[in-house]
Amino acid sequence: MVRTNPIRRRSGVSYIRKTWMLYAMLALPLAFFVIFRYIPMTNIVIAFKEYNMFRTVWSAPWVGWKWFSKALGTADFFNALRNTVTLNLLDLAVGFPAPIMLAILLNELAYRRFKKLTQTVVYLPHFLSWIIISGLALQLFAPNTGLVNMALAKIGRAPIHFLDSSRGWVPTYIGLGLWQSVGWNTIIYLAAITGISTELYEAAEVDGASRLRKIWHVTLPGLRPTIVTLLIMSLGRILGSEFDRPYAMRNSLVTDVADVISTYVYRVGIRSNQFSLASAVGLFQSVVCVFFLVIANSIARRSGERGIW
């Protein structure tokens, strides 16, 4: 090929000639972000307006904090708020340490082939939708014909109402969350473990460190930055809520423990057409989430960790 233009100075004309194509490529993605991510943010104003189906977002009259005080005055909202926090805290308490332990366990597993197999199997549930998982759970935990209750009956125990009683539902919800995500969440820790220098282990070996001591003094400190980063992100989500998971697993018998903010917003907003009220609750949730994220991050940074920004 002939070199047509060996050295290009960055003059204005040549800059445009060189880059107009790049901007053209970006046009569609940028349009996407503007239309589907930024424009809806302007609709948040309806949280402060008297909005209904017959008005546009802009013509609706302002009502100030009306919807916020209305939400704060209903037991339903507090029920959803309490459930969101409870379920998220339980998820954090159970689901946060579990992948760390599993990653260490997998790392200690001596048989390489078997390790691969274990990983392949435990990652799989991550790819099942919550609808499928709730389908699996409804069958597995059915009070009468489910595998678990049949097994319990074999050993002479009374059936447990895993999904259709409030007492059984919460542990089942948390347990299924663990089942779905624990394997997947080890990936990031396993990657971090690979990054730990083998010299550290060798040195510990020379010093006569036992297996447990090596985990405690080498592996865990090596995982610390990862743990802190993920902990910050989890704390930031303490008031956040997924939708599919609680929605798929709830039923009319357990609304007192299963109704979380996301399902509350859906119920009140889309089903009962109280758009403004539901937006106010949604906005409240987002603001608290950001607040928590900032606090968690600043605590982490103050204690000498890296933080997420």
Binding site: T19, F33, F36, M41, T42, S262, G269, A278, S286
Partner: peptide, 28 residues
């Protein structure tokens, strides 16, 4: 060397942390 790259980048990353929410999206 793409001009405006930093701004575009930030605007895109921000959407990971802030979203409009269920109802505003529904209205859109």
């Amino acid at each position: 060397n793409l001009k405006g790259r930093q701004v575009i980048n930030t605007a895109i990353i921000l959407t990971m942390y802030f979203s409009a929410g269920t109802i505003p999206n529904y209205i859109l």
